[in-house]
Design a protein around this nucleic acid. Structure first.
Lengths: 359, 359
DNA sequence: ACTCGTAGTGTTAGCGCTCACATTGGGAGG
DNA sequence: CCTCCCAATGTGAGCGCTAACACTACGAGT
């Protein structure tokens, strides 16, 4: 008999560095293998394998015997051996750069769900400081795991150039990045979203709209700024200088917001909700009311945005749908479909109380 | 010759289900192995292995030859084979349940950083709907990957009982959970934080404090409610009924906040910042000013909390430090130290403008 | 009766690594 | 000058699984 029934086995042999020598003698405590299960069930190891992999032609009585043996021994399949023998990892690699942010985190969770439905799992790495070295190391680490596709949630322009230069043999899907640079990409239609936001403010009667942009190296920043510019241009309005220096944080919005609190700014389009929050705070402290004196629009539609003071008019990003589309791209590409493809997910304007006609 | 130099290799053999038959014939396009590198460098495969694993006794000229061969062939180590042969995964498993939330996401990122410094990698699974079945499946999936320790970022009471019953042979670290149930756990000192928050309000002169709790099945909810209760009790104050029904979201705070907008509530302690935001919104809509009519304290210190209207007084959680402590627990346990241990990270009260003496 | 197909199972050979041990060639110590 | 040791490298086995193919029994078709 092995350990007590139902014990969940797990080797602890491994708790040492690779180079430390150690006897390989099979001590009684090692986790059971397929051969152990096979012996106990009175079948061959291959039959055990077939049961575990849901092959059709197994007598149900045999299957039951195998399953019973598995339970009795507390057997658990060794994923490393499986991957090695099958030359399949079933793994999708994800490199992310701002996981504590609502957007990336939501996409990651959505992707994990979508991947699970197709039998894939995720292996993700968060790159804290986004440098070429760190990024390459992250990709390298994922490739050693034999990921079958790579998803890039790192919308930094320089990094995407690096990614492009890697020239991998697996599909690479860029999410929220430059949707023209990589064959496979998916993203929110930032340009359209920014145009709609700007148009909303113009329709309310504002002469022009000021834009507080995100960090310049993020591609979304560029797309949103471009959408804003295009819409102003299309309406023949004056195009104010872009306020750079934002880093997505409320704090940066607050800092920029302070400089915005002069009388002739009646409408602000912020590149995300957090910065919009900071801007509204700065305006309030300067004695300017939102929306009476200044209208503010954000981008993202955070769950909290509805409860800001005032509730924020913003552009909603459908993260779950984006995740689904990414998974579709991966599957198509894995199935051999080679054409470049850009999945553009549409945003929607959520009008709340932070926007009003100029007074 | 192989492909053009520098090409990053990656097998595509795998893009099919496990049971689909396929020839194993070595086509020219397969990724290079250690043997290929060895042949090119004119050494044995073992020497290549030693170079890759930083063994000391390698002549530097040999090392250079091997490294050159690796670069020329675009060789990349096969992690599955490595794990199988070494019986080590170098993997830490993480089960999380609310990744898009700031707290869990921050801990995960911090843990990934801390783990990387010790040569470990993370394999994480997010459990979207927290049921026993889903949770067990997540753990099972991680165990198949031969994780060396398991971190539970799932502070649901029923789930932790399940986890306890699993009886794993690897260290299990519960983060933010019941710090008495599992031998190894780490968390923020919710009780202390809640007491300090409550005391702050009492010190301002409030008669008593109302508590809006988080979801009952989350252990943090209980600890924060308990801290609040203890502090009121210690001061001999009336203990109002707890407002349950919150789910951490601003929306739930808003709903509860509506019922709070009657005149005799002068101080509210919310179990997190988002709910505090919702409460403040509801109070504002009911014509009650914060902090003049009602003081509000949150918990978390989200980066945005400082820019709420009014800026929120709240309890800061040091997520990064928590992650570091978790890693320390893991290492101690992996090193064989067996005693139960609870790492309690101290919170700090951040006083801003949402609290004031009653008027 | 004799193929033939097929359901159900077993046998064998790797997958690409690391481990343990074997082997070589100097340089230090007697 | 011979031994011994150790640095530097090689050889062989095997980790636990899946792929490919072999095999058996049995019922259907002719």
């Amino acid at each position: 008999m092995s350990d007590r029934a139902g014990r969940l086995w797990q080797s602890r042999r491994g708790a040492r560095p690779y180079h430390v020598t150690m006897s390989r003698t099979h001590h009684a405590g090692r986790p059971p293998t397929m051969a152990d299960v096979a012996a106990r069930a009175g079948v061959s190891h291959q039959t055990v394998s077939r049961v575990l992999n849901d092959f059709p032609s197994i007598r149900s009585e045999t299957r039951d015997r195998v399953l019973a043996a598995i339970t009795e021994l507390g057997y658990r399949r060794n994923d490393a051996a499986r991957r090695l023998a099958s030359a399949r990892s079933g793994l999708l690699g994800v490199v992310a750069s701002a996981l504590p942010q609502f957007g990336p985190a939501s996409i990651l969770v959505g992707l994990e769900t979508a991947a699970a439905q197709e039998g894939y799992r995720l292996s993700s790495v968060n790159v804290v400081d986004v440098t070429e070295v760190r990024f390459t190391a992250a990709v390298e680490q994922l490739l050693e795991q034999a990921i079958e596709a790579l998803v890039l949630l790192v919308p930094h322009r320089p990094i995407l150039h690096v990614a492009h230069a890697l020239d991998l043999a697996i599909p690479v899907i860029v999410v929220e990045g430059d949707l023209t640079m990589t064959p496979l990409s998916a993203g929110v239609d930032n340009l359209q979203g920014a145009r709609v936001a700007t148009r909303h403010l113009l329709n309310l009667g504002h002469e022009t709209v000021v834009h507080v942009a995100g960090p310049a190296e993020w591609l979304e920043s560029g797309a949103r700024a471009e959408g804003w510019r295009l819409e102003l241009e299309a309406s023949g309005r004056e195009i104010p200088a872009i306020h750079w220096g934002g880093d997505w944080s409320a704090r940066s919005g607050y800092l920029i917001g302070k400089s915005l609190a002069h009388a002739d700014t009646t409408a602000v389009f912020a590149a995300n909700d957090q910065m919009a929050l900071g801007i509204m705070r700065a305006l309030a402290e300067a004695g300017r009311r939102v929306p009476e004196d200044t209208s503010v629009v954000g981008f993202d539609d955070l769950p909290e945005a509805q409860y800001f003071t005032p509730p924020l008019t913003t552009v909603r990003q459908p993260f779950d749908e984006l995740a689904t589309r990414v998974m579709q791209l991966i599957q198509r590409s894995l199935a051999g479909e080679a054409e470049p493809r850009v999945e553009l997910v549409q945003t929607s304007l959520v009008i709340r109380s932070s926007t009003a006609p100029p007074s």
